[in-house]
């Protein structure tokens, strides 16, 4: 059951972030980004689907990926707080993407040695996706950080706003610790050095500095979220819940 919970955390991270990116569709700053953001959203939602499916199989109650996504309330969602942060502006969106991808890339590299075949399969695909998410989001962080006065100011605001959600990425919940001990998932704390390096390289080019975050925010893994997630889920789950048992 604990591996089930750990996979659910991971799946929720991907679905919630994919959903956030999908909110941009048709409203991006340029047509190229109207294509790029759904692309990244599709990667994330694809990963979430496989992980929900695997979690449901481990749970053994016959639930589907959609039951997992659409029938749990915000207190049952186990995503980290970073991914549920609202889009705000393009600077927040690309920085959130960079922070997450810089964490998940080494995560999936390590997960290629998982004792779980499904996790290994996901890792093989996701490792390539996260590499280009880092490249795409990272290039934007550099362009905006070292662009105009306005873009640099907006980028600094995003760094200020999102950096308090970084530490939580590297915390392992009790469920995650068991999955890590069983060799199913990588140890999150071990990925910090690589994350710091990825971000330092990009921030160096972007003329940004990573601030100290003496009061990091935590709680997502226990279902203690901000207020925005409830609205996201209310919207996402509305049709599914209005027609219990219907096929779509």
């Amino acid at each position: 059951m604990t591996v089930y919970h750990a996979l659910l955390e991971l799946a929720d991270d991907h679905l919630v972030l994919g959903h956030r990116l999908s909110e941009w569709c048709g409203h991006a700053p340029m047509l190229e980004e109207d294509l790029a953001m759904p692309n990244m959203a599709l990667d994330l939602i694809g990963t979430a689907r496989t992980l929900y499916d695997r979690a449901a199989a481990l749970e053994g109650k016959g639930r589907s990926e959609d039951d997992m996504a659409y029938l749990r309330d915000e207190r049952a969602y186990r995503n980290c707080l970073l991914v549920e942060r609202p889009n705000e502006d393009f600077a927040h969106t690309v920085l959130r993407q960079l922070y997450f991808a810089a964490f998940m890339h080494p995560y999936w590299i390590a997960a290629q040695d998982s004792t779980d075949g499904v996790v290994r399969g996901v890792a093989g695909k996701a490792v390539k996706e996260m590499a280009y998410h880092i490249r795409h989001a990272g290039e934007w962080v550099i362009r905006l950080g070292d662009g105009t006065e306005e873009s640099a100011a907006r980028m600094r605001d995003a760094v200020e706003a999102l950096s308090i959600y970084v530490d939580e990425l590297f915390d392992s919940s009790p469920a995650a610790r068991e999955a890590e001990a069983a060799g199913v998932l990588p140890v999150r704390a071990d990925l910090r050095t690589q994350w710091d390096k990825t971000i330092a390289d990009i921030f160096g080019e972007a003329a940004l500095t990573l601030p100290e975050a003496p009061y990091p925010q935590r709680g997502g893994r226990e279902g203690l979220h901000g207020e925005g997630l409830g609205h996201l889920l209310a919207e996402m789950q509305s049709v599914y819940r209005a027609h219990p048992g219907a096929q779509w």
Binding site: E23, L31, A41, I45, Y70, E235, V239, Y240, A246, W248
Partner: peptide
């Protein structure tokens, strides 16, 4: 795009995202 965030299954959500992305590509 008005329905991407409310698509009633993950499969439909992914397919709709991909479709809307195709339309942008056509543009």
């Amino acid at each position: 795009g008005n329905w991407i965030t409310r698509a009633p299954s993950l499969r439909r959500k992914a397919a709709l995202l991909a479709k809307v992305q195709d339309e942008g590509g056509h543009g």
